[in-house]
């Protein structure tokens, strides 16, 4: 990873620079026009979120059962990224919802799920920071349970909203005219965000490792 890091950063930066150009070249969606363009980054953020949740949950389980320090650092990095992507996704989603449905927030299943996942992983970060000695293990439990509860939250919110349908109905993106170029742009953005996720995970894991190393050095210096 260390050797590939710099080239990948360059690649990621180039992809992010090109993404707006690609999005500008896509045709307007027939009903939502300009606002639909937020979709390219919006969906891509959810892809990054999915990856980050999985990484955090699985790394937490590994840490809990064999105490691997690498897994612990990956867990922190994953949890922080989940919060970042969730917040970004909710903001971009709100903008879109305002334009498409006329409301900022509609308790749509996906919105509800994003909100609760945000709470779960903010909980992860809080317990890690303020949990006192052994807080890493508490946080790891939160990571595992957070990953496990995600599908339940989605299913529950889905039934809650669709059994009694209310004003807003989930709009599906029509991809009839100019569909191919729109979908290729969507995929381009998803790959860009996934690459970003991996890079940030790597950088954040390294930062956590250096922090521990620094603490050890301080302790060693005090003993002298």
């Amino acid at each position: 990873m260390r050797k590939a890091f710099v080239p990948l950063v360059v690649l990621g930066a180039a992809m992010f620079a090109y993404a707006p150009v690609a999005i500008a070249h896509t045709p307007y969606e027939s009903t939502m026009l300009l606002i639909q363009k937020v979709f390219y980054f919006h969906l891509a953020a959810w892809a990054g979120l999915g990856l980050a949740i999985s990484v955090c949950g699985i790394a937490s389980a590994i840490y809990l059962f064999n105490g691997s320090k690498v897994a612990d650092r990956l867990g922190v990095a994953g949890a922080e990224l989940v919060v970042v992507f969730c917040t970004f996704g909710m903001i971009s989603g709100s903008l879109w919802a305002r334009k498409a449905w006329g409301i900022w927030w509609g308790w749509d299943p996906k919105l509800t799920m994003a909100f609760i996942i945000d709470l779960v992983f903010v909980g992860y970060i809080l317990v890690r920071r303020f949990g006192g000695p052994g807080a890493e293990k508490l946080a790891a439990a939160m990571g595992i349970f957070g990953l496990a509860t995600t599908p339940f939250i989605y299913k529950a919110a889905d039934w809650w909203r669709t059994i009694h349908p209310q004003t807003s109905v989930m709009k599906t993106l029509s991809n009839t005219e100019g569909g191919a170029i729109m979908w290729s742009t969507v995929w381009f953005c998803i790959v860009t965000f996934l690459l970003l996720t991996v890079l940030v995970l790597a950088a954040r894991t390294r930062l956590e490792r250096l922090k521990t190393r620094l603490d050890e050095l301080y302790l060693a210096a005090e003993d002298l």
């Binding site: 779960v120 909980g123 939160m142 957070g146 509860t149 939250i153």
Partner: peptide, 11 residues
């Protein structure tokens, strides 16, 4: 911490 951790998971 208990409510902070417990409520989102048991939503």
């Amino acid at each position: 911490m208990l409510p902070i951790l417990l409520y989102p998971i048991t939503v």
